[in-house]
Design a protein around this nucleic acid. Structure first.
Lengths: 109, 109
DNA sequence: AATATTACTTTGACAGGTATAGTAATACGT
DNA sequence: ACGTATTACTATACCTGTCAAAGTAATATT
């Protein structure tokens, strides 16, 4: 299991990536993240919805109510054009970050 | 420049790496981080000393006062054996983290 | 009818990082 | 001799992202 301090700052990008592929709702994304990481990382519910609020306020994603099925009414999220640009920046930043941290993580001796 | 949220959680490891190589004092490490990253990442002074306090409290590093030269008295830090083990864990965790985030950062289409 | 699962929301707390300010000693230019 | 820059560390208050905990509500399963 990956600690939250290490993953911190990457949740926005992870969520965005999933919404970039297609419109999705929260619970679905939570399950999809666990699936794709073989349960090595599970996003906590509270974090998930905090990300939605943050990104929606910034105009990076938009939401709309979808159908009700087996439980509460689903709120779907869609990425905006601003969001697409933002995600591409995040990818670039991630590549930079990897390089920088790798400088200090190379094996000693 | 890398954002603080992205780097968050990696400061401990960066500092530890430098102390692992040899005993060092704060200001020196600050400069060394800037140098090794070509100024792409500069650790803030307050963050630096916060890391020292945290790591020393956990027994991961130890400190002693060194000579005075061109400014205040230097406080040197040395890694403990606990610290060496901790750093190796951090490396392993970083490798895992990279894999996980890369899953979501692969280029689309 | 009771329980499990799906689905979302809110609140409060915590921890890491930073801005800001301050102390103090030494070197350098004029 | 004096002012400024640089080296070096410390303390305080604040911001932000993440999460624990608790709650609401609808549908499916037994």
């Amino acid at each position: 299991m990956i600690s939250s301090d290490i993953i911190r700052g990457h949740l926005d990008a992870i969520i965005l990536r999933l919404i970039y592929e297609k419109d999705r709702y929260g619970y679905e994304m939570s399950k999809e993240i666990s699936r794709r990481t073989d349960n090595q990382f599970q996003i906590k519910e509270a974090s998930l919805y905090a990300v939605f609020q943050r990104l929606e306020k910034k105009g990076i994603i938009e939401s709309y109510l979808g159908g009700v099925s087996y439980g509460g009414k689903r709120r779907y999220y869609r990425i905006t054009s601003l969001g697409k640009a933002y995600f591409k920046e995040q990818i670039a930043e991630w590549e930079e970050t990897k390089k920088i941290i790798d400088i200090f993580m190379e094996v000693l001796e």
